[in-house]
Simulated assay, not measured.
Amino acid sequence: MPVMPGAEPYHHAGGPIGVLLCHGFTGSPQSMRPWGEYLAQAGMTVALPRLPGHGTTWQEMNRTRWEDWYAELDKTLADLRGRCAEVFIMGLSLGGCMALRLAEVNGDGIKGLVIVNPSVTNDVPLLRLAPLLGLAIPSVPGVIGDIKKEGVTELGYTRTPVKAAATLPRLWALTRSELGKITQPVLVFHSPQDHVVKPASLRILREKLTGGNLNVVELTDSYHVATLDNEAERIFVGSLEFIRTNASVPLQRD
């Protein structure tokens, strides 16, 4: 299946600190590419995979499930851990949820998390009917492109594949049920003006991550896809400072 130009995965071999970047549901690596390139220039080893079914067609994505997307991230994480002394995970939207899940499963194998407008609960009541709707309606209007900055677009699907979306509640529930396992530092960048993910997700994180390891930074001039929005640079710089603060090995520039 041909990949959309610009939706290709991105990898950079750098120093001993690895960063796994996780893009969002129906999006593509394009939404995270500037972030990955920024960290690569700072000397990180960076992996930004394209999740199965993404960056091609929504019809292909309808043949995938959350387990397929997570498996791709898990495989990439294993490769990073084999090549790097320490690994951080960073994610956008549903990519933030999968980053949290990876931290729950891998424990001390993850040094810290930086997540942007993470989604950990169902904000669309109609999604509860998705398993039935998928039998009659293959897709609904998409959710990509929630960006405040003029002239910037997100590369992804204008339609949301219903069968793929129907698998999300299981991932959300599983992730929420084990949030207490996360002891690593977690930095959340949150846009109050988010038209995709409602405030409930951040509220859940604040309720569950009570060990003093959660820090929330508000983005007042960005919408959901903040990694491409007005405050993208703030996210990039903040994530690098987060690594500098929490890594136990020195950063290495190319």
Rank of each mutant, 00 (worst) to 15 (best):
Y157L: 04
A173W: 05
A13R: 15
T167K: 07
G18P: 10
L73G: 09
T76F: 02
G142F: 11
S191K: 11
L133P: 12
A200M: 07
C22Y: 04
E233W: 01
L92E: 12
Y38M: 00
R65N: 07
H190S: 11
A42H: 12
D108F: 00
D229E: 02
G211P: 05
I17T: 14
V120H: 07
W69C: 12
I110Q: 12
G15P: 06
G145Y: 00
M90N: 09
S191Q: 09
K198Q: 14
T245Q: 14
Q30P: 01
V46Y: 12
L126G: 03
V225S: 01
A42E: 10
W66Y: 14
P199F: 03
E60N: 10
Q184R: 13
R203W: 02
T64V: 06
M44Y: 15
N117Q: 02
K111S: 12
D221K: 15
P141Y: 03
L168I: 14
G55Q: 04
P49L: 00
P5F: 00
G15I: 00
K111A: 10
P9G: 00
H23M: 04
R176N: 12
E241K: 13
Q59K: 13
G180A: 10
T220F: 09
P192T: 08
P199V: 02
H12P: 11
G6Q: 01
N117E: 03
D68M: 04
R253Q: 14
P250V: 08
P161Y: 13
V196E: 02
I137F: 10
Y38I: 04
T64E: 06
H12W: 10
A78E: 10
G91Q: 03
W58M: 07
E60H: 09
L251K: 09
Y70D: 08
V225L: 00
C97N: 15
E37W: 01
E104W: 04
G91P: 09
K198T: 14
K149Q: 15
G109E: 10
Y70F: 10
K75R: 14
M61E: 14
L100Y: 02
I235T: 06
N213F: 05
A13N: 13
L168Q: 11
K149C: 05
E67T: 15
A7P: 03
D123Y: 10
L187P: 12
V237T: 14
G91V: 04
P131R: 01
A165D: 10
A99C: 05
V217E: 14
I137G: 08
V105A: 12
G96I: 10
I235V: 06
M98C: 06
V216C: 13
L94W: 11
T175V: 09
V188E: 09
S119R: 07
L51P: 12
T220S: 14
G15A: 08
A200Y: 07
H23L: 05
T56K: 13
S201A: 07
V188A: 07
Y157F: 15
P138Y: 11
V217Y: 06
L126N: 08
R81Y: 05
H195V: 07
P9M: 02
A136H: 11
A13W: 06
V249F: 08
H190Q: 13
D123A: 11
F236Y: 15
L155C: 01
R33Q: 13
R159N: 15
P192V: 09
L135E: 13
V3L: 13
P34L: 04
E218S: 14
P29A: 10
P199C: 05
L20E: 08
S222Q: 05
P161G: 15
A130F: 15
